[in-house]
């Protein structure tokens, strides 16, 4: 009983009241919130260009299973544009290519590839259609090459579309070209019916 009375002694309480106050103040630091490490896109005082994210040094080779001079990564076999996909052509690959094409290419080239995407249309830019004899007969590696390195006014999309996806887009472009250039005689009667023909 005596000890309980001692604990509740108001002057004793007053003497320890500063402890929770200290805890409250101690909780105000933010060094866990902003830890001394870099996250993506953070500025840096350490590097001259002010960026924490470092560009790869020249001649950096990507860490992939593919050799850096492979068809998969370059679009070329022995210096010539590849004539075949470096992977199996599957429905999944085409579907993958479709989502990539619609995200990255359609703004200019249009969903159907006829060169009247919304940016081309609103910006008044002449964007080549994918449906002409030159692009219909060009090697499939050509599309990979253009996505990787850009051409004319088109920028490189290499930093946004990984190599496997570039091939998927190339395959999908072939599918788009076919969709606009099929001989009606190659269609089944049912398919012609759907098109409203005979």
């Amino acid at each position: 009983m005596e000890s309980a009375a001692r604990t509740l002694n108001p002057s004793r309480l007053a003497r320890v009241a500063w402890i929770p106050l200290c805890l409250l103040l101690a909780a105000c630091h933010i060094d866990m919130y902003d830890q001394p490490r870099y996250t993506a896109n953070q500025p840096s005082d350490f590097f001259e260009d002010g960026r924490a994210m470092r560009p790869p040094v020249p001649n950096t080779v990507p860490m992939t299973d593919e050799p850096p001079d492979s068809v998969m990564l370059t679009g070329r076999a022995n210096g010539e544009l590849a004539v075949e996909l470096p992977m199996e052509l599957t429905a999944e690959l085409l579907e993958r290519g479709q989502t990539r094409y619609n995200a990255y290419c359609a703004p200019c080239h249009g969903l159907a590839g006829d060169g009247n995407g919304v940016i081309a249309y609103r910006g008044g830019i002449q964007v080549p259609s994918l449906h002409n004899d030159r692009l219909r007969t060009v090697q499939v590696g050509y599309f990979f090459d253009v996505i990787t390195n850009g051409i004319n006014r088109m920028y490189s999309y290499a930093n946004r579309i990984p190599p496997e996806d570039r091939w998927a887009v190339a395959a999908y472009v072939r599918a788009l070209q076919l969709s606009q250039n099929v001989d009606a005689n190659d269609l089944t009667a049912e398919e012609r019916q759907q098109l409203g023909g005979q």
């Binding site: 703004p107 200019c108 940016i119 609103r122 910006g123 830019i125 006014r153 088109m154 920028y155 999309y157």
Partner: peptide, 8 residues
């Protein structure tokens, strides 16, 4: 710039 080298 992949668009804005051409538009705006």
């Amino acid at each position: 710039m992949s668009c804005h080298s051409q538009v705006w």
